[in-house]
Structure formats: C-alpha cells, structure tokens
Amino acid sequence: MKLALARSSAVPLETVLIGDTPADVAAGLATGVRVIAVTTGHSSTDELRAAGVRSTNPDFLASCAN
C-alpha cells in the first residue's frame, strides 16, 4: 500500500482501500487510507473487525448476501 501511494502521489486521506481479508484492513489502516471491508472472501465480519481497526467497525463494511 505504501508503494502504491508513493508511485501514484495519492493522498492517504483521499484514498480508499477495498479489501476482504484482515491483512487488507491492516494495510489500509497502517497507511492512513479509508477502508471498505467486504465479506466476499473467506473472512467473516468478526475477523475483519478484529483486524486492527480503530473502532468497532471499519470505515465501511459491505456484506455479501448469499
């Protein structure tokens, strides 16, 4: 994430990371970008919430209705 931000000259507060794993959430939070966590992968809502987010919820959480 840091490399992508540096190469694109993107501003972290104006950048959004969309991910479906705890590693995605952690990478976004570590670089100061907004995070949209989606439950389309193998990670549950609880796993995504436990991934080190600053509050009880990521910035956004989209759940896949099966």
Rank of each mutant, 00 (worst) to 15 (best):
M1L: 11
M1W: 00
L3M: 04
L5D: 02
A6T: 02
S8P: 00
S8R: 04
S8E: 03
S9K: 11
A10W: 05
A10I: 00
V11F: 00
V11L: 10
P12V: 00
P12M: 02
L13Q: 15
L13A: 15
L13V: 13
E14Y: 10
L17H: 09
L17N: 08
L17R: 08
G19N: 06
D20Y: 03
D20V: 09
D20N: 12
T21H: 07
P22Q: 01
D24H: 09
V25G: 06
A26Y: 05
G28I: 04
L29R: 15
L29C: 08
L29Y: 09
L29G: 11
L29D: 06
A30Q: 11
A30D: 13
T31R: 01
G32K: 07
G32E: 02
G32P: 10
V33R: 01
V33Y: 05
R34S: 13
A37G: 07
A37V: 14
T39S: 11
T40P: 03
T40Y: 01
G41T: 09
H42Y: 13
H42T: 14
H42S: 14
H42F: 14
H42G: 11
S44A: 11
T45R: 12
D46S: 15
D46R: 13
D46E: 14
A50R: 12
A50S: 14
A50I: 10
G52F: 05
V53I: 15
R54A: 10
N57L: 11
N57F: 10
P58F: 05
F60N: 02
L61E: 06
S63W: 00
S63K: 07
S63G: 12
S63I: 10
S63H: 07
C64D: 06
A65C: 14
